[in-house]
């Protein structure tokens, strides 16, 4: 499978007044199958926009995306579960839409630490639990591309820990191309195989480097490597 190929020449956001706001410029990235890429950068540098372009949710940009896989799982910053459906139904629904045989929602929910919650409605969950459920939903489509937008932001430590452990396990399998937006260098160092760094707005690619193995235990190694780059 050829790598997922992202080429953004320019992405501008129209504004109510004044000229369009330039969000991204000259970002060219390849995502080999099974790779795990962390996207780092200051707030407002277009990280989320980059994910939206990558997944096809945003098509109003200059550039192209090639070899985008069919089955994409995404964890948005907000959980975005359908509030009128049980967790199990939320999972079943996306699998059905992807043309997959009915999944076992209980097993998927157990993986994210939500055993026994299958028949509950999303409104009964805390933010951390809901984001874990959203991750279970993303996994329910057996994604070829998994996209995570700040998966650890404003989570309790239990939820963050659960997600981190699950991701590490999943990513070790090396089948799913994964793109992860984060603020925290530590998360990038722990989970990602490589790191793409964006500049402040308009975001351009300022560095792309492989995470040194030593950085897994000592994130400072990654920081040093980034400073050098």
């Amino acid at each position: 499978m050829p790598p997922l190929e992202l080429r953004i020449r320019r992405k501008a956001q129209p504004r109510a007044e004044g000229p369009p706001l330039e969000v991204l410029r000259d970002v060219a990235l390849d995502f080999p199958t099974g790779s795990v890429t962390a996207v780092l950068g200051p707030s407002g540098c277009g990280k989320t926009t980059l994910l939206r372009i990558l997944t096809g949710l945003d098509t109003a940009f200059e550039g192209s995306v090639h070899h985008r896989p069919r089955r994409i799982g995404m964890v948005f910053q907000e959980p975005r579960l359908l509030p009128w459906r049980s967790l199990a139904d939320n999972l079943r629904m996306v699998a059905a839409a992807a043309g997959l045989p009915p999944p076992r929602p209980e097993a998927l929910l157990e993986r994210v630490g939500l055993e026994g919650w299958a028949t509950r409605l999303p409104g009964e969950l805390s933010l951390g639990m809901a984001r874990r459920a959203a991750l279970a939903r993303a996994l329910a489509v057996q994604p070829e591309l998994l996209v995570l937008d700040e998966p650890f932001a404003s989570l309790d430590s239990e939820s963050a820990g659960r997600i981190r452990a699950l991701l590490a396990e999943l990513l070790a399998e090396g089948r799913t191309t994964t793109v992860l937006v984060t603020h925290a260098l530590e998360d990038a160092a722990e989970l990602a195989g490589r790191v793409a760094v964006l500049t402040a707005r308009p975001g351009t690619l300022s560095a792309l480097l492989d995470v040194p193995p030593a950085a897994r235990r000592e994130p400072a190694v990654l920081r040093a490597a980034l400073v050098q780059a």
């Binding site: 997944t55 096809g56 949710l57 069919r70 994409i72 995404m74 948005f76 907000e78 975005r80 359908l82 459906r85 629904m93 996306v94 059905a96 839409a97 992807a98 489509v141």
Partner: peptide, 21 residues
């Protein structure tokens, strides 16, 4: 619109989108 994007991302057909979203 956020739920609309979920339906697009997970490729809901028109009927499913109508009924579920």
């Amino acid at each position: 619109p956020a739920l609309d994007e979920v339906a697009r991302l997970y490729r809901f057909g028109p009927l499913m989108r109508l009924r579920e979203v």
